[in-house]
Design a binder for these strands. Structure first.
Lengths: 111, 111
DNA sequence: TTGACGCGAAACCTTAAGGTTTCATATAAT
DNA sequence: ATTATATGAAACCTTAAGGTTTCGCGTCAA
């Protein structure tokens, strides 16, 4: 079967930009067209559009044309690579930072 | 008490560069001086030194002068921010991507 | 059909990122 | 004392990143 294909852009790179991280969050609320998204930023629609392209090249979002608009949808799957990368360092805070770990978990629970 | 201080550089930004991610991995083996580290890269020692400074500004490494050398040590703690950010999307692969999740876990186990 | 809307492509600008080489300084070794 | 090591600061170069504005095209509404 087809399988992997998309790695045109690095995930780490893609999420490095705060605007792009925010876009992902916004899309968490569901599929949305470009203009709706760009309304949340102080930059031009075109600029937002470019960020969306980068996210798409990293496989984090997918577009779908509906009439005259292009709707973007979140795809969290590529974040698993990040999760795996992070897992490598997991032991650091499991072994040495027990107290801190508990603190963070409390934070997570409280959110 | 003192507490937080360092966020001179964004963690997401810091780990966006592959060279820097590799430096973190190398430091996982323990404290090391600049020259030892730079031996693993095709770039100049000075360039590596700059990457180390960026990692340090993000709190991911700490330096310690020993004689004429500067030894760098890994500090994984700032990665917790990344972990928390990621946790937000956790449900995506927990709810919708069960099969994929299992696949990845197998991958992790096999590694 | 005539507009208005929604969007991407192009061309262009500015600045930050990643690199390099050269130089100065502190510490170690002879 | 002299020489060799280890490293950061400076100055500089090139390219990619993030933005902007202008333009063209397909689509929906009057």
């Amino acid at each position: 079967m087809a399988g992997a294909a998309e790695p045109k852009q690095d995930v780490f790179q893609a999420i490095a930009d705060p605007t792009r991280r925010r876009l992902l969050r916004l899309l968490d609320g569901g599929e949305q067209p470009v203009t709706a998204l760009s309304g949340h930023f102080p930059i031009s629609r075109t600029a937002v559009s470019k960020h969306l392209r980068i996210l798409q090249d990293a496989g984090l979002v997918h577009e779908r044309k509906v009439g005259r608009e292009t709707r973007y949808r979140l795809d969290a799957e590529p974040l698993l690579e990040l999760k795996r990368w992070l897992a490598y360092y997991e032991r650091y805070w499991e072994n040495k930072l027990g107290a801190l770990k508990r603190f963070v978990e409390d934070e997570e629970a409280a959110e």
